[in-house]
Amino acid sequence: MDLSNRTRQRISLGIQAGLFALVVVVLALVVNWTAIGQSFFNVEPVLPMFPEIFTVGLVNTLQYTFFGFVFGLLGGTVLALMRLATFPVYRWLATAYIEFFRGIPAILVFIALGFGASLAFGWNLSTLQVASSALAIVGSAYIAETLRAGLQAVPKGQVEAARALGMPAWRAMVTIQIPQAFRIVLPPLTNEAILLTKDSSLIFVVGMAGSAAELTKMGRDGINMYQAGLTPLVVVSFCYLLITIPLSLLARRMETRGSRPTRRKKVKA
C-alpha cells in the first residue's frame, strides 16, 4: 500500500480514538453507576474518619515504613557487602537469605513474627516491632540486590585509580566506590520505599490495637463501623498516594538529574 507516513499516523490515531470511545460507551451502559457511587463514593463515612486517619493511620504507616526502611537499608548494606566478599561462606549465606526472602510472600514473615515469635521464643513484640522488623527482613533482601548492582555499576577504573594512588582497599570502597554507588541506587531505593509503604498494610494479619492502627486497618474499621459501603477504602487509598506519589516524583527527579554533581559543600572530602 502506498500510504504516506502522515496518512498512516492519522489512521492509527483514528483507530485508537475509536477504541477508546467504544470502551467508554460500553462501560457507561453496562456498569451500575448508582451502586458504585453508593459503595465507593458515599460521603457520609468520610468526615468521621478525620482527623484520626491522619493523626493515627498515616502516622503509624509512616512510622512502620520508616523504621522498616532504615533497618532494611542497614541489613541490605551488610548483605550486599557479604555478596561481594571474597570469603565464600559470606557469599553463600547472603545469597541464601536474599533468595529465601525474595521468594516467599511478605505476609508469611508478618505471620511468623506476629504469632510465631511469641510461640517459639516467648517474645511479646509490639505492633511497631513486628511491622518494622518484618518490613526490614523482607526489604533488606531486595535492597541488598539493588546495592550490589550499584556497587558493581561503578566503573572498575575508579577503584583501580584509587588503589594506584595508594588507597587501601577499604578506603577506596568507602571514599570512592560507595559514594558513587549511592548516587546510582537512589532512584531504585526510593522505589523500594514505595513498596515497603504498601507492604506495611500486611500487619493487618496480626491484628493491632486502635492506637497502633495503620491506614489499611483504619479503612477496614471504617467499613465495619459505618456500614456505609467501601468509601473508607477510597479515603485510605488517597492517603497512601499522599506518601507514594511524592516519593515517586522524587525518584523520577533523581533519575533525570542522574550523574549531575551535587554541590561541593555536600561532598564529604
Binding site: Q158, A164, G166, P168
Partner: peptide
Amino acid sequence: DAMRREIGMVFQQFNLFPHLS
C-alpha cells in the same frame, strides 16, 4: 599501598573521581 604511593599512574581513561571536584 606504601609502594603504590611512590608510583604515580595515569590511565587511558583518566579515571578521575566524578563525584569530587
